[in-house]
Computed example of a mutant assay.
Amino acid sequence: MSAAGPLRLYRTTVSPDWIDYNGHMNVAYYVLVFDQATDVFLERIGLGPEERKTLQGSIFSVEGHITYQREVNLGDPLVCDVQLLGFDEKRIRFITIMRHETEGFVAATMEWVHLYMDMNLRKVAPMPKQVCEELQSIMNDHALLEMPAEAGRAIAKPPLPGTRP
């Protein structure tokens, strides 16, 4: 990826225990892969396990939206790219795009909103200056990227027939 591209931070392979009764990766393991990619992203911005202990702060997931686009199967190599969509002193919004590494297709996406928490107070708090500076550096590149079509999507608007509005 170029300097102005999404961050390619995580690779994995579909494990046998991730396969469900339909013969493809179970939905729970998509979330696992996205969560593991998020951990690598957090380390990249200065919020890895050691920094969280030192800072007495951490990130909590407060909202997420997954799109499942193509199935992946046993042994498939996966890569996850992270694109920062925005942030402020207390929040981070980003999308992770899971691709089949050799075939290149998008398997799934997950858009996240995370809050920074003071772990002593268990309340939302401003992120450390160095984390905001790293996020700004990434945002300077990612602001030039096209917004992914999956970003900001909602489920079933208008409601499906037979459901309540």
Rank of each mutant, 00 (worst) to 15 (best):
R122M: 14
R52Y: 00
E111G: 09
Y10I: 08
H100I: 03
S2K: 10
K123M: 11
G46L: 10
E150A: 14
K123F: 02
V33D: 06
P6H: 04
E63P: 00
K90R: 15
K53S: 09
P126I: 11
L144M: 11
R91M: 12
A154D: 00
M98W: 07
H65M: 14
L121P: 01
T163C: 03
L144K: 15
K90H: 02
S15I: 02
A149L: 12
E103L: 13
I19C: 08
A154H: 04
T163H: 07
S15K: 14
V106G: 04
I19K: 07
D141T: 12
G64K: 08
V33F: 09
D81V: 01
V33A: 12
F41D: 03
T163Q: 11
Y29A: 04
R52M: 15
G64S: 15
V124C: 11
G57Q: 09
L144S: 13
N26E: 09
L47T: 12
M110S: 11
T102I: 05
D141W: 05
L74H: 11
N26G: 12
F105V: 07
V82G: 05
A4N: 13
Q69K: 15
E43S: 13
Y30H: 14
K157R: 10
E63F: 00
L145M: 14
I66Y: 08
P128I: 13
G86W: 01
P159N: 05
V106L: 05
L7K: 05
E111V: 07
R164W: 07
M119N: 12
L9S: 08
P159E: 02
Q56A: 14
Q130Y: 13
Q83N: 06
V113P: 00
R93W: 01
E63D: 15
P165C: 02
L42I: 03
R122Y: 04
K157I: 13
P128L: 08
V31D: 13
Q69C: 10
L42G: 08
D141S: 15
A154V: 07
D88Q: 07
E133C: 04
H65P: 00
G23M: 08
G57H: 11
I66W: 01
E43V: 15
P126G: 12
L7T: 08
E103C: 01
A143G: 03
G75M: 01
L121H: 06
E150R: 02
D88M: 02
Y10H: 13
L160W: 00
H114C: 12
V40C: 06
S15P: 00
A156N: 13
G75P: 02
A107V: 09
G162S: 09
H142Q: 11
G23K: 07
T109H: 06
V72W: 06
Q83E: 11
